Simulated scan of single mutants.
Amino acid sequence: MAAASNIRLTSTLTCPECGGLSDGEMPLDACQFFYDGPHCKVVLRPRAGECCVWCSFGSVPCPPIQTGKACCS
């Protein structure tokens, strides 16, 4: 389990459609189910069984997952 000071809030999303990369800051107080991709304009949604777009397409999982907690609960 990561300490609160070790939580990374910045992640790079990789678009599954075009491979475009987008840096973003993950929210601490909400799940992000949708993300408007700036490259090909596709709206990203979490893959089946995953909690948010950051866990599905990000280089770093969302803050709750980083700390060993359930996301979006």
Rank of each mutant, 00 (worst) to 15 (best):
A2R: 15
A2P: 00
S5V: 11
N6P: 00
I7P: 02
R8T: 10
L9P: 01
L9K: 07
T10I: 15
S11Q: 08
S11C: 12
T12M: 03
L13V: 09
T14V: 14
C15E: 06
C15A: 10
P16R: 09
E17H: 09
C18D: 12
C18G: 10
S22M: 02
S22D: 12
S22C: 05
D23V: 13
D23L: 08
G24F: 12
M26N: 02
M26K: 05
L28Q: 13
L28D: 02
D29I: 04
D29G: 02
D29A: 04
D29C: 00
C31F: 02
C31I: 05
Q32I: 00
Q32G: 00
F33H: 13
F33V: 14
F33E: 12
F34T: 15
F34M: 15
F34D: 15
Y35V: 09
Y35T: 03
D36W: 03
D36N: 13
D36K: 08
G37Y: 14
G37P: 00
G37A: 12
P38W: 01
H39I: 09
H39T: 13
H39R: 06
H39E: 12
C40L: 04
K41P: 03
K41E: 15
V42W: 00
V42H: 03
V43N: 15
V43L: 14
V43M: 14
R45A: 13
P46G: 13
P46R: 10
P46W: 13
R47D: 04
R47C: 02
A48E: 15
A48M: 09
G49R: 06
G49L: 07
E50W: 08
C51D: 11
C51R: 04
C52S: 05
C52H: 10
V53K: 09
W54V: 00
C55N: 14
S56N: 11
S56A: 11
F57D: 06
G58Y: 01
G58Q: 03
G58E: 02
S59T: 15
S59Q: 07
S59V: 05
V60A: 08
V60N: 08
V60R: 14
P61V: 11
P61H: 01
C62S: 03
P63W: 11
P63H: 06
P63T: 08
I65P: 00
I65V: 14
T67A: 07
T67F: 01
T67K: 11
G68W: 01
K69D: 13
K69L: 08
K69G: 02
A70E: 07
A70C: 01
C71A: 15
C71I: 02
C71R: 07
S73F: 06
